[in-house]
């Protein structure tokens, strides 16, 4: 049965790590089961012949949009820090990096 599975528990754990989301053991099992059913449904798109079909990232025919690089009023020092869960003086306080 495991051979027919599209993703294993180990793979789900690995992808969750890449996505910076810790899962509980229970969730790892539940998500794996749900993902297999969802991916099974998604895989129906492989039936379609898409040879030579361009990609639609975006429905508008826009390429790049430019504007003048003009200086505008900014939020100042205090406002951007207002929502910070942890801060010190004028800085966001980050967890340990190294």
């Amino acid at each position: 049965m495991d051979r027919n599975r599209r993703v294993s528990v180990e793979e789900v754990k690995h992808i969750a790590e890449l996505a910076h989301i810790k899962l509980t053991e229970e969730e790892e099992t539940l998500f794996t089961e749900q993902f297999n059913r969802i991916l099974d449904y998604f895989s129906k798109i492989s039936e379609v012949n898409t040879e030579g079909v361009p990609l639609t990232y975006h429905v508008l025919d826009l390429i790049n949009v430019y504007r003048e690089d003009e200086v505008q009023e900014s939020l100042g020092e205090e406002e951007p820090l207002k929502n910070a869960p942890k801060r010190e003086d004028r800085f966001f306080k980050a967890p340990r990096i190294v």
């Binding site: 793979e11 991916l39 798109i45 898409t50 079909v53 361009p54």
Partner: peptide, 25 residues
């Protein structure tokens, strides 16, 4: 997590790129 999976190496073409082509169709 599923989105990260669809964009990850090895599955990118099978899911994400394919979906963008279907979008064109």
């Amino acid at each position: 997590i599923l989105g990260t999976y669809a964009l990850s190496a090895g599955y990118f073409e099978q899911y994400y790129m394919k979906a963008l082509k279907i979008r064109t169709l």
